[in-house]
Design a protein around this nucleic acid. Sequence first.
DNA 1: TTTAGCAGTCTTTTAAACTGACTGCTAATA
DNA 2: TATTAGCAGTCAGTTTAAAAGACTGCTAAA
Lengths: 364, 364
Amino acid sequence: MRILKPEIAKEREEKILRMIIQEYVQTRKPVGSELVAQKGLPGVSSATIRNTMKKLEEEGYLHQVHSSGGRIPTDKAYRYYVDYLSKIQQIALKERQRIEQEYAQNNEEINRVLVHTCRMLSAMTHSAGFVFTSNVQDSVVQRLDFLPLGPCNILAVLVTSEGVVKHWPVRVNRIVIPTKLLMLNAYINEQISGLTLRNAQRVLWENLRHGNTDEDGFCELACKILKDMINAQNYSEQLYIEGMSSLLDNVSSDEYNELSKMMRVIEERDKFAGLLGEKMQELKNNKGKKVSVSIGSENELSELKNLSIITSSYSVGDRTIGLLGIVGPKHMEYTRMMSLVNFVGEMLGMTIKNWQASLEDHKE
Amino acid sequence: MRILKPEIAKEREEKILRMIIQEYVQTRKPVGSELVAQKGLPGVSSATIRNTMKKLEEEGYLHQVHSSGGRIPTDKAYRYYVDYLSKIQQIALKERQRIEQEYAQNNEEINRVLVHTCRMLSAMTHSAGFVFTSNVQDSVVQRLDFLPLGPCNILAVLVTSEGVVKHWPVRVNRIVIPTKLLMLNAYINEQISGLTLRNAQRVLWENLRHGNTDEDGFCELACKILKDMINAQNYSEQLYIEGMSSLLDNVSSDEYNELSKMMRVIEERDKFAGLLGEKMQELKNNKGKKVSVSIGSENELSELKNLSIITSSYSVGDRTIGLLGIVGPKHMEYTRMMSLVNFVGEMLGMTIKNWQASLEDHKE
DNA sequence: TTTAGCAGTCTTTTAAACTGACTGCTAATA
DNA sequence: TATTAGCAGTCAGTTTAAAAGACTGCTAAA
């Protein structure tokens, strides 16, 4: 259902635009009128196509690299293609099977599953693959323990209900007595299991303020540590990314200069993870939408203006718990990529759900 | 002290070879006889230099890209340079200060220190920077805890005496009772603290065989988990690497084809980590040596034949606990890089030592 | 041994001519 | 009015030839 359909009205124009994009994605060479006439519209003369192509260029959908060359799609054209011209496509059976197989060895650690997900995404799309997990403060606590490392040192270990394990060393300004720490652990897990980390901190603080007496200063200590943990979090630690070297494949030699910048900004993580953080917020707010596409200059990072990002959220039940996707060349097969990323998202969600179930499970 | 000094005997030949290497490293252009005569040997005519250069080429130290071009050093030349021609160089004061400053914020988590070390190495050398930690089974246990995750699920958390934290989820075929697990933790840490993981497993097994009775099956459980942990370890998890995009800088266009392969093999980790594993063994066996250089085809991975690797071991006391270094273009400033990598290795060792001390520390 | 000098080799640069792939326009056509 | 055929014009890419530039190798003399 096309809600809004700007400017391009006529069917033939759309057909021509679609053809040019598909042809360009395959060949990566500017597309000329003759080719379109032959391959896509046998009854129509190339002159007609030329007229249309000129109009499309004036409207900003096509670009001519030089006056006698064919035309290539602009970012606007890709956007139009993704929004209106691409038919929803079933993921190919072979790919589907490969993905399902990849998730079949079920009893892997979730951290490793995330890395494998990146690798698989990368391998299947010849792009870089990534997974972006929610911020720990929004994660539901599966288990939180404080381990004694030294007289004044504690290691906080958090397992989220999504299976991600995080740890922070904490230095406290009192001497830690191991047996008391054990009691603290018991107390905490009783109090906050099932809450998000943020809420856990709130609950403990409430307890502290007008709750029971805080005999050994347990509650206060726990509060402080939780606060530290929340503050220490930063975006880039939520990001897994693999397969960056794929970006080097299929790159024409004039793009090499840009490439170094692109890879650097992704590798440095901070900016890129920030971008994904915002995207996750968007997808959470817009419940209906799952897959998102950012084409070239639509990306807020100017370094990524020659790349496109395809993202899907993944969830357990109705809780969106992360993002995954690919970063690749603008001239990618958008429809295939979108359905693929979407499917992987579903599989990852299911895998995490299974992991949760296996925790409850009593049998071998 | 030159132990062995093959083939090239005369001083002038060495001087010429050294000049050519240094010049080529700076300009990355083939070096001609005239330039050497002018810059390096004002009293000598270019014809003489030519004769010498021809001889050096016949001996395999120089290579002519084409008959009328200047000459470039071969891998053999770099090797000779590193072994005999490069004077040990003090690291520049500025660089030294920068590195010291980087390690000044002392109370960071070790995992993060390792990542920062990679980044710094990369930034200062325009190469990729890496750290390779010892295998956990050879690491001394600082603390090992089993946390209850579910009826049949345990999370094993290991802190090594080098400050590295590792965790494994373990599924056991019995129902886990949290309070018993606590007792197990206490028992284990009492028994194995200060041992390597491998030895810890052995000790527990000995205890099990002809030691005290194993009332609740604690010891057996612990043994099994330790065994799993040791087996699950693989090389690539010991490797931290950052700054791969630096390899794209300063690369001439004809090298781009190779580049993709190089980056892929490093990114995939397994093979590269294997290489480093062997190198660590070498350095451990050869106590006197700390810094190691592998030039181009000396690397066992054919994909890396256009790169050089500079490695230094780092240690606490007399225990070598890891490797760090850089991967960069063959035409690098070997002497500067070697002293820099060496110094960073020393700083990292000190930092870990300080961390250990801070654990013992009672004061704020 | 060393050197000056020159011939020879091969890349790089420059320029000109040519080719091929398109487009834009115009005038005719349906 | 929409379409078309046909042709002139544009410009990147390729080819070719010529010239310049950067070295080397060799030889004969110092």
